[in-house]
Deep mutational scan, measured.
Amino acid sequence: MDVFMKGLSKAKEGVVAAAEKTKQGVAEAAGKTKEGVLYVGSKTKEGVVHGVATVAEKTKEQVTNVGGAVVTGVTAVAQKTVEGAGSIAAATGFVKKDQLGKNEEGAPQEGILEDMPVDPDNEAYEMPSEEGYQDYEPEA
């Protein structure tokens, strides 16, 4: 019985440690998101679009440190934060509304985080759909 109880105690310690790591990862992701939003706020009209992409990228980098179902929630929060940063930029006159959601080359930025393969159960990952990809044929 002692062996059984000791095993359960060790398992509990492992769960607590994993929860603490997840909590730490979420806190880091939130900190990076805040950094990115402050970065966007300090940019001029020309830099705002690039700044919004930076927020998304920093958040995406930190999301990889967070495991399990938390990833889905962090990704949703990050996307809403990026959308909010863009709205703030438009409201303050840093950028025109028609410039939001495009990178410096004018290509749409939507789907940055949505296409990231995420499995809350950590069982399997699927690649994003290939609808947006084109076949590449090298020139002879």
Rank of each mutant, 00 (worst) to 15 (best):
Asp2Pro: 01
Val3Tyr: 03
Val3Asn: 10
Met5Glu: 00
Met5Gly: 02
Leu8Gly: 00
Leu8Lys: 00
Ser9Val: 02
Lys10Phe: 00
Ala11Thr: 06
Glu13Phe: 11
Glu13Val: 07
Val16Asn: 09
Ala17Tyr: 06
Ala17Phe: 10
Ala17Cys: 09
Ala18His: 04
Ala19Glu: 00
Ala19Asp: 00
Glu20Asp: 05
Glu20Gln: 06
Lys21Ser: 12
Thr22Pro: 04
Lys23Ala: 08
Lys23Met: 15
Lys23Glu: 00
Gln24Glu: 05
Gly25Met: 15
Ala27Arg: 11
Glu28Thr: 09
Glu28Gly: 07
Ala29Lys: 06
Ala30Thr: 08
Gly31Ser: 15
Gly31Thr: 10
Lys32Thr: 05
Lys32Ala: 06
Lys32Pro: 01
Lys32Leu: 14
Lys34Ile: 08
Glu35Asp: 01
Gly36Glu: 05
Leu38Trp: 10
Tyr39Asn: 09
Val40Met: 11
Val40Asp: 00
Val40Ile: 01
Val40Pro: 00
Ser42Trp: 14
Lys43Cys: 15
Thr44Cys: 04
Thr44Met: 10
Lys45Asp: 00
Glu46Val: 15
Gly47Trp: 07
Val48Ile: 15
Val48Ala: 04
Val48Trp: 06
Val48Thr: 02
Val49Ser: 06
Val49Tyr: 08
Gly51His: 01
Gly51Gln: 02
Val52Gly: 02
Val52Thr: 00
Val55Asp: 01
Val55Met: 14
Glu57Ala: 08
Lys58Tyr: 14
Lys58Cys: 01
Thr59Tyr: 00
Thr59Phe: 15
Thr59Cys: 14
Val63Ser: 02
Val63Thr: 05
Thr64Asn: 08
Thr64Ala: 08
Asn65Met: 05
Asn65Tyr: 05
Val66Arg: 01
Val66Ile: 15
Gly67Pro: 05
Gly67Asn: 01
Gly67Glu: 02
Ala69Arg: 15
Val70Glu: 08
Thr72Trp: 04
Gly73Leu: 14
Gly73Tyr: 01
Gly73Val: 12
Val74Phe: 09
Ala76Arg: 06
Ala76Ile: 08
Val77Lys: 04
Val77His: 04
Val77Leu: 09
Val77Ser: 02
Ala78Tyr: 14
Ala78Gln: 01
Gln79Met: 03
Gln79Ile: 07
Lys80Phe: 14
Lys80Ala: 07
Lys80Tyr: 06
Lys80Asp: 01
Lys80Leu: 12
Thr81Gly: 07
Thr81Asn: 01
Thr81Gln: 05
Val82Ala: 03
Val82Met: 03
Glu83Thr: 14
Glu83Ser: 09
Glu83Asp: 06
Gly84Gln: 14
Gly84Lys: 08
Gly84Val: 05
Gly84Phe: 04
Gly86Cys: 12
Gly86Val: 02
Gly86Lys: 07
Ser87Met: 09
Ile88Tyr: 13
Ile88Leu: 11
Ile88Phe: 15
Ile88Thr: 06
Ile88Ser: 06
Ile88Glu: 05
Ala90Phe: 07
Ala91Cys: 05
Ala91Ile: 11
Thr92Glu: 06
Thr92Pro: 04
Gly93Cys: 05
Phe94Pro: 06
Val95His: 12
Lys96Cys: 15
Asp98Gly: 13
Gln99Asp: 11
Leu100Val: 09
Gly101Thr: 06
Lys102Pro: 11
Asn103Pro: 03
Asn103Val: 08
Glu104Ser: 05
Glu104Leu: 10
Glu104Met: 03
Glu105His: 13
Glu105Ile: 11
Gly106Asp: 03
Gly106Leu: 11
Gly106Met: 11
Pro108His: 05
Glu110Tyr: 09
Ile112Cys: 11
Ile112Tyr: 06
Asp115Ala: 13
Pro117Val: 14
Pro117Glu: 13
Pro117Trp: 03
Pro117Asp: 07
Val118Ile: 10
Asp119Leu: 03
Pro120Ile: 14
Pro120Val: 04
Pro120Lys: 08
Pro120His: 05
Asp121Trp: 03
Asn122Ala: 08
Glu123Ile: 15
Glu123Arg: 11
Ala124His: 13
Tyr125Val: 12
Tyr125Leu: 12
Tyr125Ser: 14
Met127Ala: 12
Met127Glu: 13
Met127Thr: 10
Met127Lys: 13
Pro128Leu: 12
Pro128Arg: 12
Ser129Tyr: 08
Ser129Thr: 08
Ser129Asn: 13
Glu130Leu: 04
Glu131Ser: 08
Glu131Trp: 07
Gly132Glu: 08
Tyr133Lys: 04
Gln134Gly: 14
Asp135Phe: 07
Asp135Ser: 11
Asp135Gly: 05
Asp135Val: 04
Tyr136Gln: 15
Glu137Ser: 07
Pro138Gln: 13
Glu139Cys: 12
Glu139Asp: 07
